[in-house]
């Protein structure tokens, strides 16, 4: 017995032109991956906004927890030697 639902939630990522990053566009509902792709195209690319689309079941996405942000992202801040400005250049050397 199949009950009436609004189908599964999928997240849509779109590449605006070849070579660009895939950026989250929004979400769609669909029963399977081919319907998700078609719905994503109809919903988020009516004016050539995309040249390529990824659809991902929303349930498969793992997101960081904002409550853990301090612990999770902080260690990066004290590693100043990861930035080029940390280094002393000899006076006459030109930057590449």
């Amino acid at each position: 017995m199949i009950t009436d639902t609004q189908l599964e939630l999928w997240e849509v990522f779109m590449q605006s032109k070849p070579g660009a990053n895939y950026i989250h566009a929004g979400s769609v509902h669909a029963s399977d991956k081919s319907m998700a792709l078609q719905n994503a195209r109809d919903t988020y690319s009516r004016r050539g906004e995309g040249t390529s689309i990824w659809v991902v079941p929303a349930s498969a996405i793992v997101a960081s927890n904002p409550d853990d942000n301090d612990l999770f992202f902080d260690p990066a801040n004290d590693k100043v030697y990861r930035h080029p400005t940390f280094y002393v250049m000899p006076k006459d050397a030109k930057a590449i």
């Binding site: 199949i2 009436d4 609004q6 029963s31 319907m35």
Partner: peptide
């Protein structure tokens, strides 16, 4: 539209 959604679900389950 109910039957369309139900048919889509049935199709997914079958696959």
């Amino acid at each position: 539209g109910k039957w369309v959604r139900e048919a889509a679900e049935a199709h997914r389950l079958k696959k």
